[in-house]
Design a protein around this nucleic acid. Sequence first.
DNA 1: GCGACAG
DNA 2: ATCTTGTCGC
Length: 232
Amino acid sequence: MYDNYSFDDAIQLQNNLAKYLSLVPVKNITTIAGADISFDKNSTTMFAGIVILSYPELKLINYALETFETSFPHEPGFLGFREVPALLKVWDLIHNKPSIVVLDGNGILHPRRMGVASHFGVLANQATIGCAKSNLYGNNHIPENSKYSSLEINSHGEILGFSLRTKDNCLPVYISAGQLITQQQSLDIIKKCIGNYRIPEPTRLAHEIVNDFRIGKLKAGFHTINQPLTLF
DNA sequence: GCGACAG
DNA sequence: ATCTTGTCGC
């Protein structure tokens, strides 16, 4: 899909996609999904997965898994070009789309407002939130050391996201709106997705299943949990 | 020029 | 991202 894109091409596409950003409120939230990618260090095979949780109960309902071949290199600022094609392939397996998808990485907290969450959100026309584990862009102020403390992250006076303490004595995560959601909602909703771990449940569970998929413990396809369980 | 740099 | 042992702190 993007394998023969140069970085100049990629920058142009990001700037064009950014024109479609619409940070309007998301309504009637009944489910929230987490999406992630796993891969072996020197392999082009990506193991993509999406988990769907009920909201606000956060019980695992469904998950989907697919593999995808990518040759686009890892490059800060261009994560979408590596991960979005694989995620769109798993996305196709899901017939009942979730209200929101949380992705591992940034949304508009990005030099061209086109982090992986915004990139996926624009192409899939889907409400998304970016949840990154470290800081890519903007000022990096560390919030107070207590659960739920947060600080705005801005660039040139513009608010682009938040650092959020999801657990005492743990480094913050970085939240930003992806697409079809307001900045305030992105922060409020992620706060409600915090379990007993640093990483909020949607992304945390997605990471867990793609790893099990990669090591052969789970198989490709769309799966339904018969007896939804709270996993924390 | 220098340092930083999502996964 | 993944691999991998011990170690510090709540």
